[in-house]
Write a protein that binds this DNA or RNA. Structure first.
Length: 1141
RNA sequence: GAUGACUUAGCUCAAUGGUUAAGAGCAUUACGCUGAUACCGUAAAGGUUGAUGGUUCAAGUCCAUCAGUCAUCACCA
């Protein structure tokens, strides 16, 4: 134990941190914080794996601070918190980075560069910035185990994923299906949603849009429409009915198999003429969309409404079409109606394509139909739209792909065969096939309206060509099968903030679709499914052991002539890299003896990270053999589900979802009990940070300049973590100065005097009831603080906790307790009162170091160790091994805290009065007058009277009782209490109350109730239903705040003035002492020029002055040479201050 | 386009539906205090609480509409 508290020459947070970091790594402080809690209840935390192929940014600092502070807090609360780190190493961003680096595109992989070589590059790239990440982790004080992280590309990790996939496969939750995905014909590849979200992908384009006319078949279903026509007195020649459907992609029309309507949408049958051919027709469309196509419509239109024009010249005729509504009905009424195929070619003729064309060409109902655009009837081509596909399956429409993967119409598509549906080859002579289709339809009486339509449409980011939605084979996890269970379990998760779980996540679950696992890339976890060429047989492999057995089987079957060498090597070494291209070289044998190849897909990287609760441990071969339902290595035990996870809100549909999905799918459990999502970090102007804008904040620079603690504190206390935060360096500076500066100074103050007096907390702890009021007050406040901070931390509200601590340090500890108690530390002998002061301040500081330790781990540890080095009160070497403070309810004295507040308010008011009349605080004043409203208020004030007097330099406090008519009172209703009782009478009562006379208020107070007539009706008011306060004291300068009013006697008597002079003199001498560099304890001698105006004053208070300035001698001389000139209340004099001895 | 969140002083944030008709801190200005202080205190200035309606005795707070910002999803006939 050292004898002295360490003192510093300045607050340098980054330097402190360097020192603490060194100490942590020397002593293994992190490991010890875990091992010390061996046997304690575990608090399970999952680290969301970052991808180390990019540089860490400031936004990583906030989520990691959040994670770190919770883990540190829980450790201090007595839990054992293991934190295994991890790295996300697969996925598109990594591949794209490597492509860019090598200057290749996806198509080149396997050609210009082998898959093996390419994956090797990826493997190198994924941990490129690992050092940077480790460095940030260390410097920001994030305690996480980086020695043994899980890495998603490792075999053990992938093997666990396989095991999970096989579990899903066994449950029938893993299936292959066609899905409609964005596809770039120009690039010949499907695009991930990530690729589609590249900037500049969506472009406004003008496409030929077409409202096509689908001719209704007359049958039972549609009979009511045909009857309506017949009943209409006009014409019988016009008996064709068409369903109108709009499309911006006319090339999909040959693949049309259905028309979708909204069951509850109102539709109308309209008699009109074809605007191109002028022949009479009848059309069906949504009523709401009539104005788009017909002039003169209004909302009141109904059956029988007509619009006719007298045709005089062709131009009017062309613009305006006559029409009449002849029937109105709901979508559900035409559901099931049949229509003729719009464009019939060999390739889409149902007669030759029984497989492809199902029960097609009918009207079906779908809930995605809106009446915003088009006609309210949706042209449905199951191959070219996700909605279309879904509803096509549901209604057994079939599935027609009229376009090949190069973007051309297939053979058998008549005159369109072989033509590109969009200009995919930069052909300058390209003729838009969509226009030709529209022209054909026009001619055939099958187009109602053709026009250019501008909309935004996704383009391939690589080729700049429009994307097609195209059917591709993919493997899915049937998450929809357990949707209800996922929703149900989600309700048990503690989300911070709640809205993320209920809203964002809840809605997402409600609208869940099956999880498309397939990715046609190279660097990722291969899907462990092998299929025979005819697709008749397949196997899902769930472990390396199983794979080996299958290989041996296949080997025996003699499948390895060509690749035998490789396989032999693999078997010999017992090691198989589970990545491409190796796994693809493995050919297995089916049960019936056919060769099976692996399906080429990789799986979505989100499966990688969502599986980390299991894969971070890897499979335990023994448990696997035993058929254990949780065959994971030992770390697994007791580590599922997590008590706590935290990441950015952008993970809601990412990691938060995949964790939840896999846990519910495989283990019917939540994966985490509490989930804190933090918002984005924006720049100071509220813009998203991006490299392009150059507004990215470098976390290293920030931490090096201002310290990790100040950065962490700022990030946590500035705004709730889940709100987006505007990051401003000035905010960190403020935190550094205000919070850490204040705390540092308080410590410095303590250390300075404790070292002088040799305080080491050796004396017995002085019982609270033997300590002065102010000590009991600060300890009461401290314990109240501890209580509330614990509550907030338990509720994952670190922002609120931090703000409370800030307030305490600033307002209570530094600017009230220490300021008022300064004298106690340097005046007088080392006896009871002084010991009380030291013990109290020590307790505050030491408790604070533990309170702030989770948020600011460095500074707190520094102070803690400095304090503890002298006193040895804690038997631990770091604050992070200590227990978190627990409130001592016995120390909390609310009335005491209340009256101290009263003292602070009174002082503040008196100071403002002084200011008003321009009398400085050093000038003593005689008295203040405080009206008291009740006896308890008086008692409260009396107990802090001395503090007030000292603080504002006033000699006495006089109280005015309520029965004193001297004070005028004010009365107002207590709105909370009266609101419910009175309701609408509230206003009148409020008005009546303000009119009450002083004697009436007095009467009210005496009786405790009052009969107040309002609008002729008596209203009985209780005293508790009103608030009475004093307002004015006639003839005095007053100030008030709340119910507290003070009046100050501002008369400065000669006596007071003399004392003021003396004090002023002391102040000047003290300044000279300080400037001369005297020690606190140095005795001095003072010579001062004898100026008449001051001499009396100073002589009179000579004893006082000498005591204050530690002078043994104070002499007045007629003349002083070479002295220091000082000024006291506008009078100058010379003094000589000399050190004695 | 849909859904959700947000919008309070120049800036960052407060304010269980309840009243000296919205409070702090920062920044600005002026004056003070300090033998711990890089602080602190007192004051000045700064607001139609994004807009418009509504519910209520009472709205920054609840509801509706609109605008702006952001996020997520989609780009869809």
């Amino acid at each position: 134990m050292s004898a002295k508290y360490r003192e510093f020459t300045g607050l340098n947070l980054p330097a402190f941190e360097q020192e603490i970091l060194a100490r942590w790594s020397e002593t293994g402080a992190f490991e010890r914080s875990v091992s010390l809690r061996e046997g304690a209840t575990p608090f399970v935390f999952y680290e969301g794996p970052p991808s180390a192929n990019g540089m860490p940014g400031i936004h990583h600092v906030i989520s990691r601070t959040l994670k770190d502070l919770v883990c540190r807090y829980k450790t201090m609360k007595g839990f054992q918190v293991k934190r295994k780190g991890g790295w996300d190493t697969h996925g598109l961003p990594i591949e794209l980075g490597v492509e860019k680096e090598l200057g290749i595109t996806k198509e080149d992989i396997g050609k210009k560069i082998s898959v093996e070589e390419y994956n090797k590059k990826c493997r190198e790239a994924v941990l490129r910035y690992k050092d940077k990440w480790d460095d940030l982790t260390r410097k920001m004080g994030y305690w996480v185990d980086l020695n043994d992280p899980y890495i998603t590309f490792k075999n053990e990790y992938i093997e666990t994923l396989w095991w999970l996939l096989k579990e899903l496969y066994k449950k029938g939750l893993l299936y292959e299906s066609v899905s409609i995905q964005p596809y770039s014909p120009a690039a010949g590849t499907g695009l991930s949603s990530h690729e589609l979200n590249q900037p500049g992908t969506y472009k406004d384009v003008k496409d030929t849009s077409c409202v096509a006319m689908f001719k209704a078949v007359r049958d039972e279903k549609s009979e009511f429409l045909f009857k309506a026509i017949l009943n209409n007195e006009q014409g019988t020649s016009n008996d064709e009915i068409f369903f109108l459907a709009w499309t911006t992609t006319p090339w999909t029309l040959p693949s049309n198999l259905g028309l979708t309507v909204g069951a509850n949408i109102d539709y109308v049958l309209v008699k009109t003429t074809n605007p191109y051919l002028y022949n009479p027709i009848n059309v069906v469309l949504a009523k709401q969309l009539m104005p788009k196509y017909f002039d003169g419509t209004s909302t009141s239109d109904g059956v029988g409404t007509k619009y006719s024009i007298i045709i005089q010249d062709d131009s009017i005729k062309k613009k305006s079409v006559e029409w009449e509504i002849i029937a109105e009905f709901k979508g559900s009424q035409i559901e099931g109606c049949r229509y003729d195929q719009l464009l019939k070619f060999d390739a889409n003729n149902p007669r030759f394509n029984k497989e492809a064309v199902g029960d097609a060409f009918k009207v079906i109902a779908g809930d995605f139909v809106t009446t915003e655009d088009g006609t309210g009837i949706v042209h449905t081509a199951p191959a070219f739209g996700a909605d279309d596909y879904k509803i096509g399956i549901k209604n057994n429409l079939g599935f027609l792909i009229g376009v090949d993967r190069t973007g051309r119409f297939i053979q058998g598509m008549g005159e369109f065969a072989g033509r590109y549906v969009k200009n995919y080859t930069d052909d300058p002579n390209y003729v838009d096939v969509n226009i030709d289709i529209a022209v054909k339809l026009k001619k055939e009486n099958r187009a109602f309206k053709v026009e250019k339509y501008e909309h935004s449409y996704p383009h391939c980011w690589r080729t700049d060509k429009p994307v097609l939605y195209y059917p591709l084979d993919a493997w899915f996890i049937k998450t929809t099968a357990i949707k209800d269970r996922m929703v149900q379990l989600n309700k048990t998760i503690n989300w911070k903030p709640k809205s993320t779980g209920e809203g964002r996540f809840g809605n997402w679950l409600e609208n869940m679709v099956d999880w498309n696992l397939s990715r046609s890339r190279f660097w990722g976890t291969p899907l462990p499914i092998w299929k025979t060429e005819d697709g008749g047989e397949e196997k899902c492999i769930g472990s390396i052991e199983e794979l080996k057995k299958e290989i041996e089987k296949a080997n025996k079957a003699g499948f390895y002539e060509s690749t035998a060498k490789i396989i032999a090597q693999i078997l010999q070494r017992g090691k198989i890299d589970l990545h491409k291209p190796y796994v693809d070289e493995i050919i297995l044998v089916s049960d019936s003896g056919k060769p099976m190849k692996r399906v080429p897909d990789l799986i979505d990287v989100w499966f990688d990270s969502g599986a980390m609760p299991y894969a971070q441990w890897g499979l335990d071969q023994q448990k696997l053999k035993e058929g254990n339902s949780f065959p994971f290595r030992e770390g697994w035990d007791g580590a599922f589900p997590a008590d706590f996870i935290a990441e950015g809100v952008d993970q809601t549909r990412g990691w938060f979802y995949t964790l939840h999905a896999i846990a519910v799918l495989v283990f019917d459990s939540v994966a985490y009990k509490t989930c804190v999502s933090n918002g984005l970090v924006l720049d100071k102007n509220g813009n998203k940070m991006s490299k392009r804008l150059g507004n990215v904040v470098d976390p290293f620079k920030t931490i090096e300049t201002f310290g990790a603690d100040a950065t962490r504190w700022y990030l946590i206390t500035n705004a709730s973590p889940w709100d987006n935060m505007k990051f401003d360096i000035d905010g960190i500076k403020e935190v550094q100065r205000k919070f850490f500066g204040t705390l540092y100074n308080t410590y410095q103050f303590f250390a300075l005097y404790a070292n002088v007096d040799g305080f080491a907390f050796k004396e017995k702890y002085v019982p609270l009831n033997e300590r002065p009021e102010i000590d009991r007050w600060i300890l009461s406040s401290l314990n109240t603080l501890v209580k509330r901070v614990n509550e907030f931390m338990d509720d994952y509200e670190p922002t609120q906790a931090g703000r409370l601590i800030e307030d305490f340090v600033d307002e209570h500890l530094s600017n009230w307790y220490v300021r008022l108690c300064r004298r106690r530390f340097w005046k007088g002998e080392y006896e009871q009162d002084k010991i009380c002061a030291y013990q109290t301040l020590y307790e505050c500081l030491e408790t604070l170091t533990r309170l702030i330790a989770p948020i600011s781990p460095f500074f707190s540890d520094n102070l803690f160790q400095n304090l503890n080095a002298v006193t040895g009160r804690h038997k631990v070497e770091s604050v992070h091994h200590a227990d978190y403070p627990v409130a001592n309810a016995g120390a909390i004295d609310l009335p005491l805290e209340e009256r101290m507040q009263l003292a602070q308010d009174a002082s503040s008011l008196i100071l403002s009065l002084r200011k008003k009349v321009n009398i400085k605080v050093r000038q003593p004043l005689q008295k203040v007058l405080i009206p008291v409203l009740n006896p308890s208020m008086k008692e409260q004030l009396q107990r802090v009277e001395d503090l007030i007097k000292a603080e504002v330099n006033v000699k006495e406090v006089e109280y005015l009782n309520t029965d004193n008519t001297f004070i005028s009172k004010k009365i107002k209703p207590n709105f909370v209490a009266l609101g419910k009782k009175l309701g609408s009478k509230m206003k009148a009562v409020s008005a009546a109350l303000t009119e009450l006379k002083q004697d009436e208020i007095a009467l009210f107070e005496k009786a405790g109730q009052f009969n107040l007539p309002v609008d002729g009706e008596p209203v009985i008011l209780q005293i508790a239903e009103v608030e009475i306060s004093s307002e004015d004291i006639p003839g005095w300068t007053v100030a008030n705040k709340g119910s507290l009013t003070v009046a100050l006697d501002v008369t400065v008597t000669p006596e007071l003035e003399a004392e003021g002079n003396a004090r002023e003199f002391v102040n000047r001498i003290q300044k000279i002492r300080k400037d001369s560099g005297f020690e606190l304890t140095d005795r001095i001698e003072v010579k001062a020029s004898a100026i008449n105006a001051l001499k009396d004053s100073l002589a009179r208070f000579k004893d006082y002055i000498c005591a204050e300035i530690l002078a043994d001698k104070l002499e007045f001389m007629p003349e002083i040479q070479d002295g220091t000139e000082i000024e006291i209340n506008d009078v100058s004099l010379n003094v000589i201050v000399s050190k004695k001895g």
